[in-house]
């Protein structure tokens, strides 16, 4: 599958323009989400994350600026915006509330059917999507309303994956799930990305999750991009992120604290396993020093 970049050029979005409720949700955003990468978007509620998600698949039209999918301006032919919505799949927050069909199978098939997929192709795409999210074939015949919360969430996710989008945008896919459910759904998304080599954009509040799963990060603050780049480069700016009132992973905080106390800790550590290795390295070097001094 080809790698599709998605790019925002000078994008601004204003809700209810020219009314007393006017509110600028995004201001002059320039950012490229790289093809084949998993980019995490992080920011406070109201920073414009959800607006950004809806701009990417043409549910909202930028007040000014352009959104490019590959080389095409998605609003070039406004009448064919549905085609863009098939290419850029969007999974909303708490998507389980959008289920409506009699069976899980029918619900997953809703999107592909709207696209005109039928017969064997439909069967294939539905079962493939169900497989990606870990729904066993026996569940497909059940009513979605009999399932557990976590399973419903995965049905909704499968409903978008079944449309075989080139870009998948997920708005807080793990919100409200317990640790087990969180890990399960995020692992599924990661595996899907690895197999399909798709472009994935993951919106989350959890710096821990983003640092664990993303290749790239974009930090949004007050309708603007505060910083973006690979996870490494962004977390080298951990102080900048923290001073802007956003949480950084606890593990990075420990490393920063040790650095402040004069220990030679490397920058850009943001997962427990990396921190583990780094501390071992540190312990060993101190041991050596101790031996040398003795």
């Amino acid at each position: 599958m080809k790698l599709t970049d998605i790019r925002l050029e000078n994008v601004s979005y204003i809700y209810s323009p020219n009314t007393p409720f006017q509110k600028e949700a995004l201001e002059n955003i320039n950012i490229t989400f790289k093809g084949g990468k998993l980019t995490g978007i992080i920011g406070h509620t109201g920073s414009g994350k959800s607006t950004l998600a809806q701009l990417l698949n043409g549910l909202l039209k930028p007040t000014s600026g352009k959104v490019y999918l590959g080389d095409t301006d998605i609003w070039e032919k406004p009448k064919e915006i549905n085609k863009i919505r098939y290419k850029v799949g969007l999974v909303f927050q708490y998507p389980e509330y959008q289920l409506f069909e009699e069976t899980v199978y029918e619900d997953i098939a809703y999107g592909p059917k709207n696209m005109g997929v039928s017969g064997d192709n439909l069967n294939r795409t539905v079962s493939e999507a169900a497989d990606f999210v870990g729904l066993t074939p026996d569940l497909l015949k059940k009513s979605p309303f009999e399932l557990s919360g976590g399973e419903k969430r995965r049905v909704a996710l499968a409903g978008v994956i079944a449309m075989e989008p080139e870009v998948l945008v997920l708005d807080e896919p793990a919100a409200g799930l317990d640790p087990r459910g969180r890990t399960e759904i995020l692992e599924r998304i990661r595996n899907y990305q690895k197999q399909k080599n798709n472009t994935i954009i993951l919106i989350s509040h959890s710096m821990e999750d983003i640092s664990e799963y993303a290749d790239e990060i974009a930090v949004l603050k007050n309708s603007k991009v505060l910083c973006s780049g690979t996870v490494d480069t962004v977390f080298r700016n951990a102080e900048l992120i923290r001073s802007n009132g956003l949480a950084i992973p606890k593990i990075t905080e420990i490393m920063l604290e040790l650095k402040h106390r004069g220990f030679p800790v490397s920058d850009g550590i943001y997962t427990t396993s990396d921190a583990h290795k780094e501390i071992i390295r540190l312990i060993n070097s101190y041991k050596k020093n101790g031996e040398n001094n003795a």
Binding site: P179, R180, P249, I251, I254, T272, S273, I280
Partner: peptide
């Protein structure tokens, strides 16, 4: 039982498993 621990707890736990 499928629960997480806070990252600081986890880090120290990993280190003590190594014998520290």
């Amino acid at each position: 039982i499928g629960l997480d621990v806070p990252q600081p707890t986890e880090l120290l736990y990993l280190l003590s498993k190594d014998g520290h």
